[in-house]
């Protein structure tokens, strides 16, 4: 059963992966990281991604209409050169965390990366 670091290493094997971090959106704290952060700085990237995650978590428009209990699963941002993929981690004790994966758009497959990141997020909180 994988710990945080093993899951991050695994995420770096996703085709096109540039960097990955596990971030607490309530505090902006980087709980773990692998690969390169944006401009070489995982912490600055975590702070920016935290703003994005909060905007999604704190606004009910992004939850499913019938139930606020079902929150957003992931956030995708694309720029000409990059994909930024945020995946919320559902641990059952309100950990308020998400995985933040940056991908090189030239080599990444967004649909596949999203599925792989989902499976890693699920494995992180397995059992």
């Amino acid at each position: 059963m994988a710990g945080i670091d093993e899951c991050l290493v695994e995420a770096m094997a996703i085709p096109g992966a540039l960097g990955i971090s596990l971030v607490d959106w309530t505090s902006g704290l980087t709980l773990g990281a692998a690969g390169e952060g944006p401009s070489g700085d995982h912490d600055a990237g975590a702070a920016d991604a935290t703003e994005l995650a909060r905007a999604v978590v704190q606004n009910p428009s992004f939850a499913d209409p019938d139930s606020a209990a079902t929150l957003a699963e992931d956030v995708i941002v694309s720029s000409p050169g990059r994909y930024h993929l945020l995946r919320f981690v559902e641990a059952g004790f309100e950990s308020g965390t998400f995985l933040y994966l940056r991908l090189d758009r030239a080599t990444a497959n967004l649909a596949m990366a999203r599925l792989l990141l989902r499976s890693i997020a699920e494995r992180l909180v397995l059992i």
């Binding site: 093993e6 309530t26 704290l29 641990a91 909180v125």
Partner: peptide, 16 residues
């Protein structure tokens, strides 16, 4: 009975 990932996350949550 519990995975390392969950335990680490739970520990960090409790500590924060």
């Amino acid at each position: 009975r519990i995975g390392r990932g969950v335990l680490e996350l739970c520990h960090l949550s409790a500590m924060s």
